[in-house]
Design a protein around this nucleic acid. Structure first.
Length: 365
RNA sequence: GGCCGAGUAGCAAAGCGGUUAUGCACUGGAUUGCAAAUCCAUGUAGGUCGGUUCGACUCCGGCCUCGGCCUCCA
């Protein structure tokens, strides 16, 4: 998993706590919740959270307790005071791993694990908590109730719930048989292409996967790299530019990456136009383009290297360059038929040529 | 059934009560030996039915469709 994440340009986490090594913290939090009147131990050895003790329960997901009770569809556990109460500590079952606790042997409930571990690693109050949209209720709702109930402090400032990946507008799932992994896609597409594909729609929206969309991502990225190609891009670029303000505004608006990417294309167009008439300014804009794209983890590669790299192996570079030289010779003697034949041959190898200023560059397509 | 969220041109995807989103694809032109890349110009939208407004893709309501959650597990 870490390898695949790295391929997509995802930074590794600084801490990865495990529930099984956080049992003491979990027990401590459950005890605190009981002491503060937010939880109760039932006769069967379970400990439950008393939802009615937390006034704002349901606020995150916009739910009301009455609606939730009305929607009950399943037989209620008789040990709960209220059907909505959820388990903090579960009495041990014979075949399951268990730990000692003040309430007897048992194991933690799912929700409390996350509250205890996040509080331990990040403190009582932290800035951003993310997760899939399916976790908003009840899991995140329960985390808030637990953490704020235990600490008396605000839990997190901002919740980010991402949409699901779908395939042909169907949910990706094992039962539908349309399940595949990042690793499999990485055989066909570069990590940066997948990253672009993900960033090209808002994180809250569902993301529909298809090879056509990955191809489109590839084409878009090619345009951006083409704008930088052949330029000696300065590492320090324009301090002030309208584009930067627009980019930042988009990102500050709940990570509106599609809008931020549109700014990148505006800059790419400017660079392309300025190359002819004002190289100095073109370089400044290119530097800005690269710097802003880097914020999104894009355009970090050398353009030439990127455009010539295949998704798989590429051990045929020598052959390609030899063919290009043969074609240059043919062109020099105005043997257009031979030149075109070689270009067709390269095209069959998915190589696209570009003649410019007497030189020929190539890229994979 | 209840509660949230969404429905934008050929494909994908944003903002915005009136003025070009953006990318790919398509069309015409420039450039090129021909291409490619690039530039210029242009076409194609807002699920549906109503309402508010001088004016709605944008606000309000109904309907339709899709997604998430509403039990356990993580």
């Amino acid at each position: 998993m870490h390898e695949d994440a790295a391929e997509l340009g995802v930074s590794p986490p600084s801490e990865e706590p495990r529930a099984t090594t956080s049992i003491d913290d979990i027990i401590r939090m459950v005890k605190t919740l009981i002491e503060k009147g937010h939880a109760y131990a039932a006769a069967n050895g379970d400990v439950y959270y008393d939802v009615s003790s937390f006034a704002t329960y349901g606020q995150l997901s916009g739910k009301h307790l009455e609606d939730l009770r009305a929607g009950e569809r399943v037989a209620v556990d008789p040990h709960k005071n209220d059907p909505l109460d959820f388990v903090l500590w579960k009495a041990a079952k014979p075949e399951e791993p268990s730990w000692d606790s003040p309430w007897g042997k048992g194991r933690p409930g799912w929700h409390i694990e996350c509250s205890a571990m996040s509080t331990c690693c990040l403190g009582n109050h932290f800035d951003i908590h993310g997760g899939g949209q399916d976790l908003q209720f009840p899991h995140h709702e329960n985390e808030i109730a637990q953490s704020e109930g235990a600490t008396g402090e605000k839990f997190v400032n901002l919740w980010m719930h991402n949409g699901f990946v779908r395939i042909n507008d169907e949910k990706m799932s094992k039962s539908l048989g349309n399940f595949f992994t990042v690793r499999e896609i990485l055989k066909l597409y570069k990590g940066e292409e997948i990253r672009y594909f993900v960033l090209a729609s808002h994180y809250r929206s569902p993301l529909n996967y298809s090879d056509q969309l990955l191809d489109a991502a590839r084409a878009s990225l090619t345009r951006l790299y083409n704008a930088l190609r052949g330029l000696d891009v300065p590492s320090t670029a324009l301090v002030e530019d309208e584009a930067e303000a627009k980019f930042n505004k988009a990102m500050e608006d709940d990570f509106n990456t599609p809008e931020a990417i549109a700014v990148l294309f505006d800059l790419a167009g400017q660079v392309n136009r300025l190359r002819e008439e004002n190289m100095e300014l073109a370089l400044q804009k290119a530097g800005l383009l690269k710097r802003l794209a880097n914020v999104l983890g894009l355009l970090e590669a050398d353009p030439e290297a990127y455009l010539q790299a295949g998704a798989g192996d590429n051990d045929d570079v020598e052959q390609i360059e030899s063919l290009i030289q043969q074609r240059l010779d043919a062109r020099a003697s105005k043997n257009w038929a031979e030149a075109d034949r070689i270009r067709d041959q390269l095209h069959a190898m998915n190589i696209e040529l570009e003649d410019k200023d007497g030189k020929t560059s190539w890229r994979r397509c």
